[in-house]
Each structure stands twice: as C-alpha cells, then as structure tokens.
C-alpha cells in the first residue's frame, strides 16, 4: 500500500468522521460501556439476592465473561462500519480533504479509540474487583489478558471485512470473537489471571495481525468499494 498522503492529522480524521473530538468520543464510549455494565451488575446482584444457591465460581466466570463481551462490543462497533457510498455520510466522506487517505487515518484512530475505551473499562473492572464488587482473580493480569484477547479477536475478525457478503461477514466476526474470547476466559480461569508466555505471544500476534489485516482490508476496500 502507498504511503498516506493526507495532510489531516489522526485526531482530525477522527473529528471529520465522527463530528466530535477524539477525547470526547473516547469519553462517551467509555461512559456508555461503564454505565451499561454497572446496570447489568446491579441486575445480577438482584438476581443473586433472589437465588441463594449461587457459588463464588459462577460469579467469577460471569464477571469475566460479561467483561469480555463488553470489551468486544467496544471494538467491534467501529470495525463493522464500512462507510459505503450508499450509507449515510458515505458520499460526504469521499469529498473531504485527503479523500481515501483521510479515511485510512480514521480507521487507525478508531482502533486507538477502542483501545483507550477498553483500557478505561478494564480500569473500572479493576476498581470493582478491588472494592470486592466483582471477582476477577488477579485483577490486573485478568484485565490485561482480557485486553489482549479482545484485540487478538479483532485482528483475526478484521480479515472478514475482505468478504463481500454482509451475512457471511457478520457470522464469521461473531464466531471469531466468541472462540477467541472463550479461550481467553479459560486462560484467565486456569491461570487465575496470572500473566505468562501465552499472553506475550498473543499480544505480539495481535499487533502483527492488526497491521496485516488493516493493510489488506484498506487496500481491498479502496479497490472494490471506495473508487467503484
């Protein structure tokens, strides 16, 4: 792929594509996730209060599973946005300064947005764990594993954007997130959140696969959708 020639900075590309600043976007995304998660935790607490048979192990699994679903949602929302010509805003985005190169920058900053939002959410989980509201085992390690798992799933699922059929694309994305997250949850459970070689290798794989998949997707998107 050619070098990006857009004179628009990454945060400005974010602003063009969302109509708000990067800081404001991340803040609202994090607040939304934290608020939704808190609401669900309250519901869970109420259900637990009604059901006295619940064990500590199910609490632990439930917390981690729920957290991984929320983290996945934070990154998948932007990933599935295709900005096609027929989508609202699709034609507008094709006319702004920098054109496709600005779009490419926006795609990169969207990954950063997801990363910051997941980190903020994980920090919130760690606080809940410290307060004894949820059970996360080694909370910092669990959060880091969760973060790596979600971004590894994103990197793999991102290849599905090379597929034209929306239904196939969606099914593959869900399957990839489900499988990788399940493995991540099992890893957290078996290691009690302690970090090891698996996490390091997974993190490296997530970075490498993200770079490869984004380049492949952008190149394919330009040829098949942007200019077509």
């Amino acid at each position: 792929m050619e070098n990006n020639r857009s004179s628009v900075s990454y945060p400005d590309a974010y602003r063009i594509y969302t109509g708000r600043s990067f800081a404001s976007g991340v803040m609202w995304l994090s607040i939304g996730a934290v608020a939704l998660f808190s609401g669900l935790m309250l519901l869970m607490a109420f259900l637990m209060f009604m059901d006295n048979d619940n064990t500590e192990e199910t609490d632990y699994l439930f917390s981690v599973t729920l957290a991984s679903i929320y983290c996945s949602m934070l990154v998948v929302m932007r990933m599935i946005m295709m900005f096609d010509k027929v989508s609202p805003g699709g034609k507008y985005f094709r006319t702004v300064k920098g054109g496709f190169d600005t779009f490419a920058k926006a795609q990169v900053i969207f990954i950063a947005e997801g990363a910051v939002a997941v980190m903020t959410f994980c920090a919130f989980l760690a606080v809940l764990d410290a307060l004894g509201i949820i059970e996360m085992g080694n909370s910092i390690g669990s959060c880091i594993t969760l973060f790596i798992t979600v971004f590894l799933a994103r990197a793999i699922a991102s290849f599905s954007r090379l597929i034209n059929k929306p239904m196939t694309r969606t099914v593959i994305t869900i399957m990839v997130f489900f499988t990788v997250n399940m493995i991540g949850i099992m890893l957290i459970e078996t290691t009690n959140g302690k970090l090891g070689a698996v996490q390091i290798v997974s993190a490296a794989a997530a970075v490498v696969l993200t770079v490869i998949s984004e380049k492949a997707v952008l190149s394919n998107y330009r040829k098949k959708h942007w200019d077509n």
């Binding site: 602003r15 708000r20 300064k97």
Partner: peptide, 12 residues
Amino acid sequence: KSIAASMEIGFD
C-alpha cells in the same frame, strides 16, 4: 454542531 465540527476540518 457535529456537521460544523467535521466540515471545518474537512474543507478549507
């Protein structure tokens, strides 16, 4: 507001 925020950067 979002239109103005986007367009003031999107175009000179």
